[in-house]
């Protein structure tokens, strides 16, 4: 079985499907925090409802960020521990890959336009990655640029495109620009299942690593003003 989960943004989202993508059960609760309390009970509930044993999970798909720091870690800690206990292989999709996959599968992406997935990065601006539409919807969107952090002022210049589509979870935080259409989209575990099917088996790894892009907010200590003379 394939278990997908997302806790990187405003939700605790879980979906269980067969390896061919047939959905067995899914849960999606909107909550921007507290997933450390709700995620494991939610998976427990999904497993009990479907009668699937944890050991039957052979693949895990998880959003690995960027997103909220704590949310990203909750998802990754879960995926890593489940992989450790079951031997399941893990597909860690960045939030950009996950959302580009969703937009591509929804079919609302005109072929001629680039897609920019933009995720708020606090005071630094936005984390962004630009994709080109795949030849077929059965393929993974291809990266044109990024991912990297761009200031809001430089955002449209960074795209280098006169027009395109911007997608992401907080479109209200992205300034408007002529020629660009916005799609408000958040990760959902059900969509992750569909996105995961675009990836070959070789994309699955032993583990998954968080993608933060933003460094921790800390400054190195200044030297002590008090040190011994000779």
């Amino acid at each position: 079985m394939l278990l997908a989960l997302d806790t990187a943004f405003n939700a605790c989202s879980v979906a269980l499907a067969s390896l061919s993508g047939e959905l067995a059960s899914a849960r999606h609760v909107v909550q921007s925090r507290g997933q450390a309390e709700t995620l494991v009970p939610m998976v427990d509930e999904v497993l009990q409802q479907t009668g699937v044993k944890p050991q039957a999970i052979t693949r895990i798909v998880v959003t690995r960020g960027p997103g909220t720091f704590a949310g990203v870690r909750i998802g990754i800690a879960f995926a890593r521990s489940l992989a450790l206990a079951t031997g399941a292989r893990v597909l860690g999709l960045s939030s950009f890959e996950a959302l580009a996959g969703s937009v591509s599968l929804e079919g609302s992406w005109p072929k001629s336009l680039p897609l920019v997935v933009a995720i708020p990065a606090g005071r630094a601006g936005v984390s962004a990655e630009m994709f080109t539409k795949p030849e077929k919807t059965s393929l993974v969107p291809k990266t044109l640029k990024g991912p990297e952090i761009v200031s809001l002022e430089d955002f449209y210049a960074w795209t280098g495109a006169g027009k395109g589509i911007i997608a992401g979870p907080r479109m209200d935080q992205i300034p408007e620009a002529e020629g660009f259409a916005k799609i408000d989209t958040w990760p959902r575990a059900e969509d992750l299942i569909r996105s995961a099917l675009l990836y070959p088996e070789s994309a699955y790894e032993d583990t998954a690593t968080p993608l933060y892009l933003r460094p921790p907010d800390a400054t190195p200590q200044s030297p002590s003003r008090f040190s011994a003379g000779s």
Binding site: A77, L82, L84
Partner: peptide, 12 residues
């Protein structure tokens, strides 16, 4: 991180 990992192991 520790709590989620422990719960997940216990569940699995």
């Amino acid at each position: 991180v520790g709590v989620v990992s422990a719960k997940t192991l216990a569940l699995a």
